[in-house]
Amino acid sequence: MVAMYLRLILLLAVILQVSHASDINCKKKGKDVEAKEGEAASLPCSFSDPTKYNKLEVTWQREVGENAVVIHAENPMGKSEESQDRLFSGRTSIPSSWNQTGDTTLTIRQAQEEDSGNYTCIIRGGGRPAYCAFLLLKVNSGSFQLYGGHHSVWIPFLLLVLMQVPT
């Protein structure tokens, strides 16, 4: 009889957890971001009503092949560096008031071409995780590329070369 009551209590606890799972309301899903090598890259991510959630945690991940590596992880007590990918150590931050404002924009200082890739912003608030941003970061070296970039860069160069062709 006691075992039956314990199962019933456990079932009620599971139902209560599922019904109160924090469905975080993401504000922005994000779009592609471009940055110059050596400068800071800002990857936007935010969610609504951060003060209503318990056990808040934000995690930024980057796809590496079929795996995801942690770029930045933080809860209201501070940044968690033990799970952070070593290539990003000391180069990432989010606003210090993120747990009051909901702004979890990731800043990557001194962006490198190797930082280019797909990033995901995940917010947990005591329930199911919310995937609030899926972004592609493109870090450009700033060097001239004839076949890449915007046409306004290479068309004048091409016209200059064509104007010097002897007739």
Rank of each mutant, 00 (worst) to 15 (best):
P50E: 05
E39C: 05
E63Q: 15
S143T: 11
I24R: 05
R91Y: 14
L87D: 14
L16V: 11
G142M: 07
K28M: 05
M4Q: 10
Q110S: 15
R128M: 08
A21Q: 13
S96W: 06
D23W: 12
W98V: 00
P166T: 01
L136W: 08
R86Q: 11
P129Q: 09
T101P: 02
P95T: 06
A40C: 05
K27S: 07
S48D: 13
S46K: 00
M77D: 14
A40E: 15
S96V: 12
T101N: 09
C132S: 01
P44G: 06
G149K: 09
R86K: 13
V18Y: 04
I108A: 01
L162C: 15
V69N: 04
T104I: 15
R124C: 03
V2M: 06
L43S: 04
K31Q: 11
L135G: 00
A133D: 04
V165M: 04
K31P: 00
V165C: 03
V58E: 04
G126W: 12
W154M: 07
A21E: 13
N67S: 13
A68C: 00
N54F: 05
Y131H: 11
G127Y: 00
S46C: 09
D32P: 07
M77A: 15
W60S: 00
S83L: 09
E114P: 01
I24C: 07
P95H: 07
E81W: 03
L12P: 03
K55C: 04
I15W: 05
Q112S: 00
L159M: 13
Q17T: 11
C132A: 06
D32N: 14
W154K: 11
D115A: 01
H72A: 04
I155G: 06
E114F: 03
L146S: 11
S143H: 12
L158V: 14
K28T: 13
M77Y: 10
S143D: 04
K28H: 08
G117C: 06
L137G: 02
T120R: 15
M1E: 12
T167R: 15
A40G: 08
P156W: 08
A133C: 05
E39H: 12
P129V: 09
K36C: 05
V58N: 02
S152D: 07
K28N: 13
F47Q: 00
L136T: 14
R91I: 14
E66V: 06
Q61D: 09
F144D: 02
P44L: 02
V69L: 10
V18P: 01
I15A: 15
V58T: 12
V2E: 14
L158P: 02
I155Y: 11
F88G: 00
Q84N: 04
A21C: 09
N99H: 15
M1Y: 08
E39W: 01
L16P: 01
G65M: 03
V70H: 03
A13Q: 04
A40N: 12
Q17S: 11
L137R: 04
A73V: 03
P76A: 03
A13H: 02
L160H: 14
T105H: 02
L10V: 06
E63S: 15
Q17N: 03
E66C: 01
E34R: 06
P50H: 07
A41E: 01
K31V: 06
